[in-house]
Simulated assay, not measured.
Amino acid sequence: MPLDRLDLRILSLYQRDTTLSGEQIGAQVGLSAAAVQRRLKRLRDEGVIQAETAQLDCRPLGLNLTALVHVDLVDESARAARAFVERVLARPEVQQCYGVTGEADYVLVIVAADLPAYEAFCQACLLHDPNVRSFKTQIVLDALRRGGPLALPEDGPAQASPPPPA
């Protein structure tokens, strides 16, 4: 089912604070609390809302190292790539995993306690994997934003951008 303007306004508020009540959201979008809850249920059922989680600060938890890891595979077949992805997604250090274009096949966002913990991850997942041709690591010096709300179109689903002028 396509998302309408009210769905997008509800999602915009809800993604910033999932503790907002139906009444609070409804007051801002012009719906009853019950209507907001029905829409949220539908959005969950349709998979638009995939999860509702707490966003934690890494540093107080002793997770002081974030790394961006660009991985180049030897065998990029569906079977081999799926095996690689399943293996890395099983690791709690892997916070994000993207299949990408360009020099790397995958970019991983790794969060670990420190450099030795990151090195242990590399030993376990990358260095001894015969399908990993190479990997490059960038250590994050300053995490200015971790996740965050998506930029949602205000007037309905986003339309394709017109091509730039020639």
Rank of each mutant, 00 (worst) to 15 (best):
L89G: 06
Q138A: 14
Y98W: 14
D17W: 04
L152E: 09
E93P: 01
S161Y: 12
P116Q: 10
A160W: 10
S21Y: 02
A113F: 09
L150S: 11
R42C: 03
R5L: 11
P60Q: 08
D4G: 01
Q96V: 01
V109M: 15
T101L: 14
A35H: 02
V71A: 06
I25L: 08
E103P: 05
V88H: 04
H128R: 14
L61S: 06
R87Y: 01
D4C: 00
L13Y: 04
A90Q: 08
I110D: 05
V74L: 10
I49E: 08
V107W: 05
V85W: 01
A143W: 00
P162L: 15
A124G: 12
Q28W: 00
D142W: 10
P116V: 10
A151N: 10
A27K: 12
T18V: 13
D105R: 06
R133F: 13
L61M: 13
L65K: 05
P157S: 12
A104R: 03
C122I: 03
E23K: 15
D57C: 03
P92I: 05
Q28M: 03
A35P: 00
D17I: 01
L65I: 07
E93G: 00
Q24I: 00
V100N: 05
A81C: 05
S21C: 03
A81D: 12
Q28R: 15
G26V: 09
Q15G: 02
L141V: 10
V132K: 10
H70C: 09
G102Q: 08
P157T: 07
L20A: 03
A160C: 08
R5G: 01
L141D: 05
F121H: 08
R146H: 12
V29P: 04
E52G: 01
A160L: 15
P116L: 09
L31A: 08
Y14E: 04
A78F: 13
Q159N: 04
V74R: 14
Q15H: 02
A117Q: 08
V29Q: 06
A81N: 07
V140P: 00
L73P: 07
R145P: 07
G26T: 06
G30Y: 03
G147L: 04
I139D: 07
P164C: 08
L115M: 14
T19P: 00
Q24L: 06
L11M: 05
G22F: 02
G156Q: 07
R39A: 07
A80P: 02
K136V: 15
F121R: 00
A33D: 11
V94N: 06
R82H: 12
P130H: 06
L115N: 09
L150P: 02
Q50H: 11
A78R: 13
L40A: 03
S77E: 12
R79Q: 15
Q96N: 13
R9F: 03
V85Y: 07
E23N: 11
R42M: 03
R91M: 06
L108V: 07
Y106F: 15
Q55S: 13
L8S: 02
G62F: 10
T66I: 14
